[in-house]
Simulated assay, not measured.
Amino acid sequence: MKKNLTILLFLLGLLKISAQSFEGEIIYQLNYKSKVPSISDEQFNEMMGTTQNYFIKEGNYKALIDGTGMEWQLYINAENKLYNKLADSNMAYWIDASKEGNTIQEVLINKKALKILGYECDEVIFVCKNGNEKYYFNSELSIDISLFENHALGHWFDYLKISGALPMMAYIETPECIIKSTAVKIDPKKLNSDIFKIPEGVMTEKSPY
């Protein structure tokens, strides 16, 4: 009886661990393929950055980007807004994350499509009106998707409903370029909530786009 109780407690412990939402940092390698004749791939990569340090905690996320044009993105869950900070401006422009204009026309799912960082990843493909999207995921990066149920922007909640996890790789096609994002390091750790606040001195304004 004591042995059975020990096994039960162990299994419950595993269940609790697996149910936890990922908190920590993921480093993504970025690559841009230009679709604009006047802008080269190299110019896109320099402007938008080739490394992204992505932090996530309790429904908030922030991405630090090493581009000459883009500095960071910040999603504040309580506001359901995504802030974009350009490198040459003291203004962070926000977008209402409840809105998404690119309609999904078809969803395709492929099991065990490829390995990333040693993890078997499933693939989900969104065939969209204005460019397709592909995501590759593993439960290693599972999160509480209920925290993002109002985050329609970028088809984020549509993706999370299928995967339940952060992507390890993504291909996003826009009218201007194709973006490839690949996880190169995963670092689960406790984060200070202050990282998800607008830095002092930075002004905010609704994006005109």
Rank of each mutant, 00 (worst) to 15 (best):
Q105W: 07
L147G: 02
K3N: 09
L147A: 05
Q29A: 13
S193H: 14
N31I: 01
D122E: 08
A170E: 12
E106C: 04
D88P: 06
E200F: 02
N53L: 05
E149Q: 14
N102A: 10
L108C: 04
Y61H: 14
K134S: 15
L114I: 11
S18C: 07
E46S: 04
K185W: 08
N53E: 02
N130D: 14
E120N: 14
V202Y: 03
K2E: 15
E106S: 05
I17N: 08
L11E: 10
F44A: 06
Q73N: 13
E149I: 06
A87E: 08
S21G: 01
N132Q: 00
N45R: 06
V184C: 03
G59D: 13
F196R: 10
G201S: 12
D41M: 01
Y54I: 13
K190G: 12
F137D: 03
L5D: 15
Y136V: 01
S34E: 08
K185G: 10
G67T: 04
L147S: 01
D158M: 00
Y75N: 11
M70D: 10
T51L: 12
L82E: 04
I76Q: 07
G24V: 11
I172E: 11
G118D: 03
I95W: 09
E120M: 09
T174I: 05
S142H: 10
K115Y: 06
M47W: 08
K190D: 14
L191E: 06
S139A: 10
C177Q: 15
I109W: 00
S40N: 09
T182P: 11
Y119M: 04
M168L: 15
Y83V: 01
A97D: 02
P199S: 05
E200P: 13
M48I: 04
K112L: 05
Q105I: 08
E173Q: 14
F196V: 03
S181D: 07
D66A: 08
I27E: 13
I27S: 02
Y28W: 02
A97S: 14
L30M: 07
K3W: 08
A165T: 06
D96F: 13
N84L: 07
A87S: 15
K81P: 05
K99A: 12
V184S: 07
I104L: 01
P37G: 00
G118N: 03
I26E: 03
M48R: 10
I116C: 04
N132S: 07
I143T: 04
L8R: 09
A170K: 10
T51V: 12
I95G: 08
W94L: 00
E71W: 00
H151C: 12
K180R: 15
K57A: 02
D66C: 05
K81F: 04
Y171P: 03
G131M: 06
E120G: 00
L166W: 00
Y209W: 12
E100T: 12
K62R: 15
P37A: 01
Y159L: 02
I172A: 09
E140L: 03
